[in-house]
Design a protein around this nucleic acid. Structure first.
Lengths: 150, 150
DNA sequence: TCTATTCGTAACTATTATTATTACATGAAA
DNA sequence: TTTCATGTAATAATAATAGTTACGAATAGA
């Protein structure tokens, strides 16, 4: 059931970075995300190009956020990742000669395009700050639950 | 770029069946869809269980539509296919212990769930008859273009 | 300068999901 | 009873993704 998880993985990484003042190394992030440091570098490369994160080499190097949490939406991240296909099901042929297939593709494209537009708009409404606040709320609840069990 | 194409393939197949009065064999459908007859049988099995198509064995056997075109929506087919995942990107962990990951998953789940609901609703609005009409329109246009070139 | 560290990236391997194929059993019609 | 066609399990091939190894380049500190 585990599919392309880059978007959620990246969000996860960025929030962990936000919790810190110092740069996080690819190794640390890889441990957080339960993956490989090279995969981290590969994924973060797109974000670096978009200015969302900054990387530094050598001693004290690693990954830092490049913009305030309020200024980065999930859509920005989606874009920086190269706008990967959101849908599992695509059309088979790009320019089908079969008119039956054209009719099918047209109907599906319409529906999928609208849903995708809606999804992307939603991604644009949520900033990293929103997510960080949600995390803090969960953290507070978690601590309260520990203090007052039962 | 070619992903799970079952929905479009099945629609394609059903419309070809609608154009005929006799049953179509798995081999014929496989040729239409540029795939393998066993894949056709496997895919159509779900539709048969849902009563959307009827299969017959032996001489004169093959696949026939089980309901009028007006009574079958794209959503019915989606359901008969076992409601496959529509989205490429899922969350990594189902019940993550990490609170950061919980916050991320929650936000993504919200957005994806809404988009999925919208898409499924749209699929429910389009019947096979709609698609067949669209095909006929395209066919008429195609013939007109052939008669009057330039 | 030398060394330890850390990213950057190419090349390769492993894993997983999907699709295709083979093989054979079952059922129906001529 | 022969021929045709589906039903389905088992297996192979393919493709997408993720993981690994290896090494170069840059940076900071001794």
């Amino acid at each position: 059931m585990k599919r392309n998880s880059r978007l959620s993985a990246v969000l996860h990484a960025l929030l962990h970075m936000a919790e810190r003042n110092a740069p996080m190394t690819s190794d640390e992030l890889a441990t957080c995300l339960q993956t490989n440091p090279v995969v981290v570098r590969r994924t973060m490369a797109g974000l670096r190009e978009a200015g969302l994160v900054i990387s530094g080499r050598g001693h004290g190097g690693g990954w830092t956020l490049g913009r305030p949490l309020e200024d980065v939406t999930m859509r920005d991240i989606y874009t920086a990742l190269g706008e990967p296909m959101l849908f599992q099901m695509g059309n088979v042929t790009e320019s089908p000669g079969c008119l039956v297939e054209q009719a099918v593709n047209h109907a599906l494209d319409d529906a999928f395009r609208d849903a995708e537009a809606m999804l992307i708009a939603r991604l644009g409404e949520v900033t990293l700050a929103t997510l960080a606040d949600d995390f803090k709320r969960r953290f507070a609840e978690h601590r309260a639950a520990l203090k007052q069990p039962g």
